[in-house]
Write a protein that binds this DNA or RNA. Sequence first.
DNA 1: AACGGATCAAATGTCAAACAATTAATGTCT
DNA 2: AGACATTAATTGTTTGACATTTGATCCGTT
Lengths: 247, 247
Amino acid sequence: MQKYTLAGEGELPVRIAEAIRDAIVGGRLIVDERLPSEQELAEQFGVSRPTVREALKRLAAQSLIRTQRGATGGAFVNRISYDEAAEQQITTSTLLLSMNAVDFETACEARYALERACVPFAAERRGADHLAAMRAEIHRQGQPGLSDEGFCASDVAFHRALVDAAGNPILSYQLAGAVEAMQPLMNMITFPARSRERIVTLHGAIADAVEAGRAEPAETALAELARYTVELAENVRQSRRERQKRG
Amino acid sequence: MQKYTLAGEGELPVRIAEAIRDAIVGGRLIVDERLPSEQELAEQFGVSRPTVREALKRLAAQSLIRTQRGATGGAFVNRISYDEAAEQQITTSTLLLSMNAVDFETACEARYALERACVPFAAERRGADHLAAMRAEIHRQGQPGLSDEGFCASDVAFHRALVDAAGNPILSYQLAGAVEAMQPLMNMITFPARSRERIVTLHGAIADAVEAGRAEPAETALAELARYTVELAENVRQSRRERQKRG
DNA sequence: AACGGATCAAATGTCAAACAATTAATGTCT
DNA sequence: AGACATTAATTGTTTGACATTTGATCCGTT
């Protein structure tokens, strides 16, 4: 049976990778099925083994297959997990943000808007574990002596808990990329004690609202948090400009 | 100057790819900068050229670099575009959904929730072009003789226009993955004339609300659309079960 | 002097053949 | 029957070579 058909034009490894990928998404190769050995694939496609290898490596880079050495080794169709998918999305999003001069306001708006989408479900389905995680992060954020980066990391953890509370793995996966990718941008902000206090208060309001099963006040607090974060970033930018003008 | 440091353990190409990727995200390699030739890289890392090639191909598969043949060719750091990033996210999301038995309801909930996040901005900033695109798709959806797949495609186009109307490229990019990845699932639904009529009506309500700059009715219509879509899928599943029992 | 085309050189793309490393199955000895 | 060495299959890696592409250079013509 002909499982793969080489089509189009361009570099061989790319076309081979596409052929195999199509076989996977088209269901002709099912999860955990073993692909032919590199040697056999090379013969089937009429190319050399290094060429096949490059194709397989492309697929491995996208987590579509995994390879195993040894007697019963080979390439296997990989069931991509939420974690793997999220991981990939985070690297892609991070690169996209860092290389395209996305202004902080746009990224921030996107992030909090997406989070807002989770709130109604979080308020409806929140479990004790997620609430506890949120409270724990809030407590950490109030600790004096916490570094700015530590504060940022805790902020991310808080928002991940909020998103996970919605109990929708697809939402969690999609949001992970948006939230995590923002972290490098957030790390440029300094959080003096007064700002932290304000943020912790808002986080508390969100946790309270979610615990009470009320979406609306949580959405309001989230919107305020978005506004305040943008304001903080604006301050940092302004003071940096002034320092540059002087020095 | 030492730009790359090989760390950790495991397969050489993976470690080399990581070293180069870290150099890119760490800013030691800037956009459009040319990497050393494969030969030079091989010498620097103390490995053979095919090994370096595999590493480069991994990076190329993630759109981190692009390669050019010829005299002035080589590998260049790639500025990843929104389209490329979205493309990758779509394939990842599609695979995730198809391989993890995600139930339609969960995926649908996620999709419409994320779309809802865009609505306030769309209502605020909608441009004539986006509104026109939405109207055009609504008109197409009303045409008799349109295939189910054509209807689905138009549905996707409508929602993309809605998302783009929010005028936030990050949101558009994030949503593209969620909306497009749903299409294979949506394609399993059949859309009889009566269902289409209902959907077109809701689409019209969304377009009207956005045009009027009112977010709330658009969100309501979107929620109703989500509910109705899940209902349609449920019907398909039920009739399929009955057919199976009989035949 | 400016334009056009042939040549060249550098780089990636591809191939071939081999050896190393790993791993599970097989077979053998106790 | 169980422990241990052997073996075979497969991927990982190296070496060396040739093909292809493409910009740059040189040279002759106008």
